[in-house]
């Protein structure tokens, strides 16, 4: 289980995130909704060890304190991040990207199994093994990014706006894939602007506003909540 206990991030004097506490367990999908600039990406980057957190808060993974761990150790702890820009190696091939996903020590023994699992999730990647990622479409790049994250055998998979820039049909396919990944026992934490589709597959959700958590409930309750509908669902 991933647990954030009151973490805060400041950029200079600007408060990007304050006192955020939440949990994500294995086998569930948790979504964080919030407007642009609410601090969603900052939260993911803070958990992944890419931005400095203020003293006081802590991040625990299965009870182990990983608050001050560098980014590469946090992957070893079982947390994989797919950032908003996908963070893939565009000048390397699909296969090389996936093999790099298994670079963490935790993932090396199970590399073959994970490769099989990723290729069954995304059969297209199997056909395109030798292709440079740079030459692929946005939807295919997203597959590479998620596939690579899955290669690290994560306990928790975090995704920053995975549906951004995808055509509606690909979006639907993406959320279906995430649901299948959840069924393999991985916990998924996603930050989304596509509230309707993400709440449809999620178990629980948090609302982030101006760096603070302002609401937390089951996905069904959030989808039916009048304020949420007005703010995030546009209805």
């Amino acid at each position: 289980m991933l647990e954030s206990r009151g973490i805060s991030v400041f950029y200079g004097r600007h408060r990007a995130l304050e006192d955020v506490s939440l949990t994500v367990s294995k086998g569930e999908i948790v979504v964080m909704l919030g407007a642009n600039g609410a601090g969603k990406s900052t939260f993911l980057r803070a958990v992944a060890g890419q931005v400095r957190k203020r003293d006081g808060g802590s991040v625990l993974m299965d009870g182990h304190d990983i608050t001050r761990q560098p980014a590469h150790e946090i992957v070893e702890a079982g947390i994989a991040l797919v950032p908003e820009d996908r963070g893939i190696f565009a000048d390397l091939t699909v296969q090389e990207n996936l093999i790099l996903g298994a670079y963490p020590r935790r993932a090396r023994p199970s590399e073959t199994e994970n490769m099989d699992r990723v290729l069954s999730l995304f059969p297209k990647l199997g056909e395109r093994r030798k292709q440079l990622v740079r030459t692929m479409s946005g939807g295919e790049r997203q597959m590479v990014a998620i596939g690579r994250a899955m290669m690290s055998a994560p306990t928790i998979l975090m995704l920053d706006e995975p549906s951004l820039g995808l055509a509606p049909l690909l979006c639907t396919e993406l959320f279906r894939t995430l649901a299948r990944i959840k069924d393999t026992g991985v916990g998924i934490f996603l930050v989304e602007q596509n509230a309707r589709q993400s709440l449809a597959i999620a178990d629980r959700g948090y609302l982030l506003d101006n760096g603070h958590i302002v609401g937390a409930d089951s996905a069904t309750n959030l989808a039916n909540d009048e304020k949420v509908r007005l703010a995030y669902l546009g209805a």
Binding site: A71, E76, G87, A149, S152
Partner: peptide, 9 residues
Amino acid sequence: AAAGLVSIN
């Protein structure tokens, strides 16, 4: 920037 995501130091 992405190398850290795959646990490369």
